[in-house]
Nucleic acid binder design. Structure first.
Lengths: 204, 204
DNA sequence: GTCTATACACCGATAGAC
DNA sequence: GTCTATCGGTGTATAGAC
């Protein structure tokens, strides 16, 4: 009974509407900022009134939670695609990993704010939404390990450096390239520091 | 007439009340979060009603602006004290500079959020409030230069790395020491990368 | 089941009495 | 200068129309 055709159709419709709502929320977040989201605006964009959203999400933070899960799932797909690609020299793998994270982040500042900063008042990601974030971090950790970086401290350092470049770029020059242009040098700096073999890339 | 004794007393009282209001705002920001500030709560803490605050500040963002200016002025004092201290070996100077910024940031996450992240909706620091931030950055730049780091790109890289460690610490483990313990290593890594002479510090 | 109308408590901000 | 009263806006809860 629980999975009768009727119920399937209903739950499919429901899931589709949820996606519509989330798309509207992403659009508004991109245009006006993540924290500027209002339920009335989101509802209007999908042809509803604000209270109707409560048929699909338990609260505004529940919408943020679903967006958080979507964003990390998307990034998980990207980072796992890198992992399953044919092997490359360690420094090239690290460069690609760093560049992928950097580009993903600066491409959509609102998404990066949701994924990596904790600035939405009262929002704490649920365990379910956090799962793809953990998986993405583990994928990155495996790729670090494949490059010979096994110590947790070294991994923390690498993550922090790339994240620092992202934040500096977004905070001081969103849309620019001043810190993005330092990314390859930063990776080589870490690789040198950790004794990773391979040629340095020429600085541009 | 404009600087009669009476007027002096009035403006002194006014400035004192402004400071009282800002102290109340800092206390609430520390306790409940920067974005959770409400004018009603701030006013209550100084024994006023919310509208009375408008006699001292033009808006809520004007309060944030004054807090922004205070925070950077405080940091400017700290960083200029470092600059006027007796010279030290380059790596030690860089370590002290990095540690000072790191400790200042993690000591008060709300203050760091206001100073270095742009997450308060609609808040853009005024030119006046931004001035001490520029001065602090210039002081840091001079100290980098005294260590032999003259290229703007190298400075950007150094700032970003330290900022990345701060953000990682605050985002993933506020109050902890996981990324703070990597700070000296990170400084040595940069110093090695840039060919700064001097002994490495033993890793802990 | 979906959606709406309505209402509530709270927010920043303003007007005007005192 | 500080107050009360109030405005438009917010997230959210719920009763009821369809």
């Amino acid at each position: 009974m629980l999975d009768s055709p009727i119920r399937d159709r209903q739950s499919e419709r429901r899931a589709a509407t949820r996606l519509e709502i989330l798309d509207a929320a992403w659009g508004l977040a991109r245009e006006s900022g993540l924290a500027e989201l209002t339920l009335r605006d989101v509802a209007a964009r999908v042809g509803m009134r604000a209270p109707s959203l409560y048929s699909y999400f338990a609260s505004k933070n529940d919408i943020y939670d679903a967006m958080f899960g979507q964003a990390w799932s998307d990034y998980l797909t990207v980072v796992e695609a890198l992992e399953s690609a044919e092997p490359h020299p360690p420094r090239e793998t690290l460069r690609t990993l760093a560049r992928t994270f950097f580009d993903f982040a600066v491409a959509e500042p609102a998404r990066h704010q949701l994924m990596n900063q904790r600035t939405i008042p009262g929002f704490v990601p649920s365990e379910a939404a956090y799962a793809p974030a953990v998986a993405a971090l583990e994928s990155a950790r495996r790729q670090f390990r494949a490059c010979g970086i096994t110590s947790p401290e070294d991994f923390d350092l690498g993550i922090a450096v790339v994240g620092g470049l992202v934040n500096a770029q977004l905070a001081n020059e969103p849309g620019g390239h001043r810190w993005g242009g330092l990314l390859d040098r930063a990776v080589d700096m870490i690789a040198d520091h950790l004794g990773i073999p391979g040629p340095k890339r020429r600085t541009s």
